[in-house]
Design a protein around this nucleic acid. Structure first.
Length: 507
DNA sequence: TTAGGGTTAG
């Protein structure tokens, strides 16, 4: 009954209530099967409190330590509920670990965004000669997709072939997704074409991949082929189709697919509404987009308002409307620093400096600080390089900026209008950066910190620029030194400083 | 009758 009432499509707490009903009786007693089933049901429903109670029963009844099934189910439950610390604890306390328990821990890390931890654990598995299977590899491929690590992803793919691991439909889909997300759409297509069986998720993965690469025509062609092969599309498939239409400027095509989607009986989600709003906005049809938003049966979320605002910025019209969108957005999310930046940039792009001032004042009144700058990253030869606005610490920073500027010029020559203001702004800022670097180097030398290399000092300065206080910089650098943190690894240090930056009070 | 995996708007 407990297993039968658990349904991944319709998560509910019914299995837990049945378990509770059973537990209230003296007979029969739950066994390891019962606990494993109910824990799985709790992980599907993300029923954290309920699962914890089951954990406690498993412990008291002695079923936890006697059954690897119960232990792994519990480990999986914590991982799926986002409680990776508890999952780790269960894993550490396991007396005997098998391939399934290792794979569960790896997948828990990946699910919670801990890509490095997942790869470290995989390394430990290899040291212990535990041979991974297709399930383990799916998690690792997903980890690469999340972090944009194409080189490592390619290595994982090669490793799968080398070990002779069967690339089933899940692994195939994960590979298609990984290659597409990491920028290699050709390789994604190659893997997809080689898949003997393709289901809804596999097709969706390919369509979304083509859409994010701006290949609207190919995405729509893939969608027709999917329909020819009688594979039923779901809401994710339509996310791909509609975002392809949005990026390709295919408004009527998108509207046609929206109607077809409703006919399929797919309930439009917030994401799908968002795709349609974006479809109109990218075609400069802000009025239509707004009308569409007003007719939504659900309350639009901040993403929808931001999409509309970006539409206004792009079309450089309807600033009166933009003000309404700003109001809605700041009502919904008054504490999100990114919203204020977006609004400031919008007004600045229209040279409406009075409005910019007003927003900045509002930020001050509401104590909004911009703590984490947006960043981009790229992996080359297994090394992840991260970039933030105004970051000149990369040894080839100038060449990189020049290349971006050249690309923008080529795009402009092709008849498009790229926004290169940030690149130009960055290049002007280089001079200031140099001055800052010299200053921070002097500080470092004065403090006897020659062990900390210049790029590290720049980052410290950069992250403290928010408060524009050299005294703070000095304090931070000396505390780094006191703690004997000597920088060898750029990426690790970058993360470290970002962390430090977001908790200045701690420092 | 028990444990691990794939696609998701701006």
């Amino acid at each position: 009954m407990i297993k039968g009432s658990s349904d991944a499509q319709n998560p509910s707490k019914v299995p837990f209530y049945l378990y509770k009903f059973l537990f209230a009786r003296t007979h029969p007693k739950p066994n390891s099967y019962t606990i494993a089933f109910v824990l799985k049901a709790c992980s599907i429903a993300s029923a954290f409190e309920e699962g914890r109670q089951v954990h406690s029963h498993a412990l008291i009844s002695g079923l936890l330590f006697s059954s690897p099934f119960v232990q792994t189910a519990l480990l999986n439950f914590y991982g799926k509920c986002g409680e990776i610390g508890f999952a780790q604890q269960v894993f550490n306390e396991m007396s005997e670990r098998n391939l399934v328990s290792w794979s569960t821990m790896v997948s828990g890390y990946v699910r919670n965004g801990l890509v490095n931890e997942a790869f470290c654990l995989f390394g430990e598995m290899q040291k212990l000669d535990i041979v991974p299977d297709e399930v383990t590899m799916v998690s690792l491929v997903s980890a690469c997709a999340m972090s944009g690590a194409l080189d490592i992803g390619g290595w994982v793919h090669a490793y799968v072939s080398k070990l002779g691991i069967r690339a089933d439909i899940e692994l195939g889909t994960a590979l298609v997704n990984m290659y597409a997300k990491c920028g290699s759409i050709e390789k994604a297509k190659e893997v997809f074409d080689a898949m003997p069986v393709k289901d809804t998720k596999a097709w969706s993965s390919m369509i979304v991949g083509l859409a994010i690469h701006g290949l609207a025509g190919e995405a729509l062609k893939a969608f027709s082929k999917m329909q020819e092969t009688k594979v039923r599309p779901n809401h994710v498939t339509f996310l791909g189709v509609l975002s392809a239409c949005a990026h390709g400027g295919l408004v009527s095509e998108g509207q046609k697919h929206w109607s077809a989607m409703l006919e399929c009986g797919i309930e439009p989600s917030m994401e799908l509404y968002g795709c349609m709003v974006n479809l109109f906005c990218r075609a400069n049809l802000i009025e239509e987009a707004h009308k569409f938003t007003e007719n939504m049966p659900i309350i639009p979320n901040p993403i929808i308002w931001r999409t509309l605002l970006m539409g206004c910025k792009r079309s450089k019209t309807l600033m009166g409307k933009a003000e309404t969108f700003v109001e809605r957005l700041l009502e919904l999310e008054p504490l999100n620093d990114g919203n204020y930046i977006l609004v400031c940039n919008l007004y600045a792009s229209q040279s409406r400096w009075e409005k910019v001032k007003e927003v900045r004042k509002k930020m001050k009144e509401r104590n909004i600080d911009v703590i984490m700058p947006g960043k981009s990253s790229i992996e080359i030869d297994g090394f992840v390089y991260e970039f933030v606005m105004g970051d000149w610490s990369h040894p080839e920073a100038r060449a990189i900026r020049e290349a971006v500027r050249e690309m923008c010029e080529k795009v402009a020559a092709a008849g498009h209008k790229p926004d290169i203001s940030s690149v130009l702004h960055d290049m002007v800022e280089e001079e200031k950066e140099k001055a800052l670097l010299e200053h921070s180097e002097r500080l470092a030398i004065a403090l006897g910190l020659i062990k900390i290399k210049a790029p590290a000092v720049i980052r410290v300065v950069k992250n403290l620029r928010v408060c524009e206080d050299c005294h703070e910089v000095t304090k931070l650098v000396s505390r780094l030194y006191e703690r004997e943190i000597i920088v060898r690894d750029r990426v690790r240090f970058h993360r470290f400083v970002n962390g430090a930056c977001s908790c200045l009070d701690y420092w």
